[in-house]
Amino acid sequence: MLIPLIRTLILYFFIVFSMRFMGKRQVGEMQPAELVITILISAVASVPMQDIELPLVHGIIPIITLVSAEVIMSSLSLKYPRLRTMISGRPITIIRNGNIDQKAMQSLRITIDDLMEDLRLKDVYDLRTVKLAQMETNGRLSVLVDSKHLPPTAADMGISAADSSPFRVIISDGKLVDKSYADKPNKHKWLQKTINAKGAKTVNEVFLLAYDEQSSVIFAKKENG
């Protein structure tokens, strides 16, 4: 009982480290080669996990080999664009100026339903408004909508809009995330003053406190005290 447990834990940490080492992206953003490597690693690791007759090295060496090969190939493909094209392929244009390239769709084996679904996910419901749609090498569709059909921005209208900056969470579920406001002058005083002003006495009573560079505050008190 203990042996499979320990072997599985060793392989688990080894796989997690390997994936971190590869700097993997999320499954949906992976290039074909990266997806293959990820699937292979999980398949390779499962064999010595289940079969304790096999030395653990028989699982670890293939993983080291796959991860190293992946890192070396991705480094080489950064340097050599031709190799990158060979491994990852290149983006294929499916729609240009509202016209569908049927040949491209056939070569990608995409149905019109798939294409319409991808467009809807990009908030595009009328393909005539699409200036350019490309199937990227990671299998995602990128869409450029014709500027005539885009809502005007503040810059288009020549008006100035207030600057915005991302909110930083300071208190999350009663716990102080100290690093996020380390740059704030007199931070402890400011924090106490802010939560008191919002009706809380201590950090424990706060569910969420976030602030942005303009010192706007988002505050939520814990419902159960």
Partner: peptide, 20 residues
């Protein structure tokens, strides 16, 4: 990236050496 590349190459060399 360079460190990862070096570690990868060294890992492969180590694996081959241990294999031999």
């Amino acid at each position: 990236m360079k460190i990862r590349l070096v570690i990868s190459v060294l890992s492969l060399i180590l694996a081959v050496s241990l294999g031999i």
